[in-house]
Design a protein around this nucleic acid. Structure first.
Length: 588
RNA sequence: GGUCCCUUAGCUCAACCGGAUAGAGCAUCGGAUUUCUAAUCCGACGGUUACAGGUUCGAGUCCUGUAGGGACUGCCA
């Protein structure tokens, strides 16, 4: 649709200039559904030249278009809107081009993009919030690739720090020789359980101290478990052998658990970054920039950046004892990423609770003279909340990723079995199907809303399989595939099939609009646009399928054309879902 | 106090650079299968786009203000 829109717009601009001598290229958009036509030129802006009534201008431009633009079959004017109807020859040419490999792809972008997403802490399992992050991150990668960009998928493991020591400490105290093999638990779940154990014990200590009259803030600092935890962090930083060995053992278990979840979810990273290897790198950079005058130092030795000119506050970048803080580490990681891959853009898929932090990071890097900082993009998304509010691991209200994947599988199985139309599938194929449907529903649920909006997930209500869902779209794929299976051996020649039915044109419009949507989604880093497009296309096909005979159409040529539209639909749906990291089943 | 995000039908979400009578799904009610997969389709019901101003041929969309919800603003990560 790119090409025709641009052509008509240019033609209209030329018509306006030849008629009135003014240079004004009108906007073009899809024609409103209640008016006849396919594309509409908006002529209101011509009013400012005082050339006469806009209706008269529309008539004149329309006549020119009809005369000189073969794609236009007829036109009508409503107020300042010039509605154009495209010719059957044009639609025939779309159909002829449709088999091209790049029919659904936008003009290629020449850029290298690094996308960092997921980035979990290694003290507890992945939860539903990460799943939204991964759904968005992976979809953005796939969309960018479809748009011709080179993509590097990066994941940063927050594998060191006080929170890691918490699970280590609890394991050291009560773990004995517990292990994933012995407990039968995935490594990340096992370690997560010890993290919860720590929090329980620690909270009890704090409560006891508070009851003995100590203020809560002091109690939180002075509780014995917390003191030991801080000591453990110091030991870790000093490289103390036993602490390091324990750290490595638990983290390796966690990584193995994460890997299983990533695989099941259909995700693989190109670049794994470990905070434990990079956390000190930012310090040198900060000290250099301090000398260069980008930062200032207080009397106690701490280093700060003043962002008052940008409407923000002062921000600490190095502690008085010379140790690093979160943003120091991020500076180091950013340098590291740039050095490794020199991406044109570096996208951070991180929840909107870090909007402020990411703003500070970008400004700080710019202040430090990092040219690559201009290419930093924070892809911010809303959190996944429960009806009761935020998920809190401490309170045990997190929705675990592995649990929800299993629940989706079970729900898909129950729904499929109830319908009972899968006799032709083997038990292996059925397992794949349940997984495909369960994840399709889940991922679509996570990707459908605009990333910026927060999502409320109610564990008591299962995610829908009907209506505006992933399942609906998958169903259309299965339906179209069924038609294609039955069409094998029929003549593929769609020549002379006669004028297009309006429902055929509606389908062709959806198919032709696809590449434009992918381009826009890549531009805006917004998978929801693809999600909506593929749904609209699926809905249109259901109408087409219901209203028109395909295999029993009047003539062989017409059968061939409608089969071709079905094949295109299946291809578009498969492609669109693949951009969302969702599988398209051939039967369901 | 400061920075930012969100608010559209009972519920969950759309609305392409500002464009025509704001559209879908769920729920409710009614209809469609001798025919290519009914996880579907068609219809009905449902709106002062939180509120008040402003900009203009035209505002859900842009600007200002107000209200409500949320996040951040730690020598935690």
């Amino acid at each position: 649709m790119y090409a025709i829109k641009e052509r008509l717009r240019t033609a209209a601009g030329a018509a306006v200039e030849s008629l009135y001598g003014v240079r004004e290229t009108p906007q073009i958009q899809a024609t409103h559904k209640d008016h006849s036509g396919d594309l509409t030129l908006v002529l209101f802006p011509l009013a400012k030249y005082k050339l006469g009534a806009v209706e008269a201008l529309g008539e004149a431009v329309g006549k020119k278009m009809l005369e000189f633009t073969p794609e236009v079959r007829e036109f009508n004017v409503v107020k300042g809107f010039l509605n154009l109807t495209l010719s059957d020859e044009y639609w025939q040419s779309v159909l002829a081009r449709s088999e091209d490999d790049d029919f659904f792809r936008p003009p290629p972008r020449r850029e290298k993009v690094m996308v960092e997403y997921c980035s979990p802490n290694t003290n507890k399992p992945i939860h539903l919030g990460h799943m939204r992050n991964m759904a968005i991150g992976e979809a953005v990668c796939r969309i960018l690739e479809a748009a011709g960009a080179e993509v590097v998928r990066a994941c940063l493991f927050n594998d060191r720090g006080i929170h890691i020591c918490k699970s280590m400490l609890a394991y050291q105290d009560a773990g004995g020789d517990d292990s994933p093999e012995k407990s039968g638990l995935k490594g990340d779940h096992l370690v997560g359980n010890y993290y919860v154990e720590f929090e329980k014990k620690y909270r009890a200590e704090v409560k006891e101290l508070v009851e003995s009259g100590i203020p809560e803030a002091v109690a939180e600092n002075d509780a014995p478990s917390m003191k030991r935890c801080r000591q453990m962090l110091l030991d870790w930083e000093a490289g103390e052998a036993r602490t390091r060995a324990l750290w490595k053992k638990l983290n390796d278990w966690v990584y193995e658990g994460f890997q299983q979840t990533f695989e099941r979810y259909g995700i693989r990273f190109d670049l794994l970054l470990y905070e434990s290897e990079l956390w000190q790198r930012g310090k040198t950079a900060v000290l250099q920039s301090l000398q260069a005058g980008a930062f200032y130092q207080k009397d106690d030795g701490s280093v700060w950046i003043d962002l008052a000119n940008e409407g923000l506050d002062q921000k600490l970048v190095l502690r008085s004892d010379g140790t690093t803080v979160y943003i120091t580490q991020d500076i180091g990681v950013a340098d590291h990423k740039d050095e490794l891959h020199r991406p044109d853009r570096s996208v951070y898929v991180i929840a909107n609770e870090q909007d402020y932090h990411m703003k500070v990071l970008k400004l700080t890097l710019q202040r430090m003279g990092r040219k690559y900082a201009d290419g930093l993009v924070h892809l911010s998304y809303g959190m996944v909340d429960l009806p009761t509010g935020r998920m809190k691991s401490r309170e045990g209200t997190v929705v675990d990723a592995d649990d929800i994947l299993q629940e989706m599988y079970d729900t898909a199985k129950a729904a499929t079995d109830e319908l009972g139309k899968t006799e032709s599938l083997s038990s292996e194929e059925l397992c794949v199907l349940y997984e495909t449907l369960g994840q399709g529903a889940l991922k679509y649920f996570l990707l459908k809303p605009e990333p910026a909006k927060r999502i409320v997930f109610n564990p008591a209500e299962s995610i829908d399989f009907k209506g505006h869902t992933g399942t609906f779209i998958q169903y259309v794929h299965a339906r179209a595939c069924s038609v294609l299976r039955k069409a094998q051996g029929l003549s593929p020649d769609d020549g002379g099939a006669g004028p297009f039915h309006e429902l055929e044109i509606a389908m062709l419009k959806q198919l032709a609009a696809f590449s434009e949507t992918v381009g826009e989604a890549a531009e805006k880093l917004n998978p929801a646009l693809v999600a909506h497009r593929v749904y609209d296309l699926a809905r249109e096909y259901n109408r087409f399928y219901y209203e028109l005979p395909i295999l029993k159409a009047e003539t062989p040529a017409l059968v061939a054309r409608r089969v071709k539209i079905s094949r295109l639909t299946a291809r578009a749906v498969r492609f669109g879902l693949s951009l969302l990291n969702i599988q398209a089943p051939e039967k369901m």
